[in-house]
Write a protein that binds this DNA or RNA. Structure first.
Lengths: 196, 196
DNA sequence: GCTTTTTCATACTAATCAGTATTTTTTATG
DNA sequence: CATAAAAAATACTGATTAGTATGAAAAAGC
């Protein structure tokens, strides 16, 4: 990777960490360049505005991460119900990057930037739809293989699972501990089992 | 109500509307006093800081509203399952104040202010716990009256319902339309029916 | 090695922010 | 009505904000 490309990536990564922990609006460019040891000239060479950088974070940091960690595993799944549970459980309790007190990065950005910034909304919608569609496909596969009831509606379940995930992360954030996750996961288990 | 008390209430109400639509951090005091036609002197006579006003909004605007619209009806309910559905459905589709594109006020504040402001977190936690406990009690009542299965765990269901609500409001916000609400409500219906 | 383009560094600006100091007006109370 | 206290009005401050203007260094092309 060229030195310039490296500078750009460093900015995106460090800025993402700051934004994930502090929020977008309250993370200033001065703070970003201070922690990245990059000058303002370099920053504005790579990004025309702060918002352009924000969208780049979604597309160049969040999207690939999601592809790798959610989309691929779900597509490869032979047992949707078991793997949905494992996916959510992993995200809530084990993922090394996500932290209880900071919630879900995609959820945070959605809450904060929608509906005031169209570029953000579009980029985030793309992400979320990708995840949703993957879940729906996985459910259809499960229906074919007999692991899921035929009368289950994929889109409904996808919305239900993702909503619950976003919501419980907000609870975790509020309480700043794992306890609500354990309670939530038990009910998720019983909900998912009812799809069989 | 005294004139001073009226000034205070006006500030809280208008500020809440601004914060609900724009977010807390991006709503400036200058903007609040401009829309309320109140001077800065008056504002800072009633509130020592912006954050003190924020907490007052939670306690004096959000809390009473929640008491009236969620707590009381749930406590009076004779048929929990039916009324849970109606409550969520009302909130998503009919409530005259809440708007799809702006999400849930409590959820928004939680996302934005936690974990960086303890006073906010405490005030919000109180609100949410109140709602949660009311739902749990309602479920226990339903179990006694035979409307809900005995093996249903109230706390799990309460978390599940509230998480789903918070999450789907984030979806609505992202898409800026009702469509996801309809899909979500269908699955909520079938989830709730499984508690019978 | 010379030139051009890319990449980055420094110093600045105008706007906005939360909050303060001080004075004036309004209201309550005797 | 006089006085004290409560409530509100005005003008300011210092810090922070996103973004710019301009020039210097690095890298690439020949």
């Amino acid at each position: 990777m060229s030195k310039a490309a490296n500078t750009r990536l460093t900015i995106l990564q460090k800025a993402f960490e700051l934004i994930y922990t502090k929020g977008y609006q309250t993370t200033s460019i001065d703070e970003i360049i201070a922690t990245t040891q990059v000058t303002k000239g370099a920053f504005y060479y790579h990004f025309k505005t702060k918002d352009e950088m924000g969208v780049a974070i979604i597309e160049e940091i969040l999207k690939p991460t999601m592809q790798e960690h959610f989309i691929k595993p779900t597509e490869a799944s032979q047992n949707p119900i078991e793997d949905f549970y494992n996916m959510i459980s992993y995200l809530l309790l084990e993922d090394p990057f996500l932290q209880v007190k900071y919630g879900c990065p995609v959820g945070n950005l959605t809450q904060e930037m929608t509906p005031w910034n169209n570029k953000f909304s579009e980029a985030l919608t793309e992400l979320v739809n990708l995840w949703k569609e993957t879940i729906i496909k996985s459910i259809e596969k499960g229906k074919e293989s007999g692991l899921i009831r035929k009368d289950v509606v994929g889109e409904q379940v996808a919305f239900f699972i993702l909503s619950g995930y976003w919501g419980i992360r907000n609870f975790g954030k509020l309480q700043n501990d794992n306890s609500s996750y354990f309670v939530y996961l038990k009910e998720l288990r019983s909900y998912l089992d009812n799809l069989k």
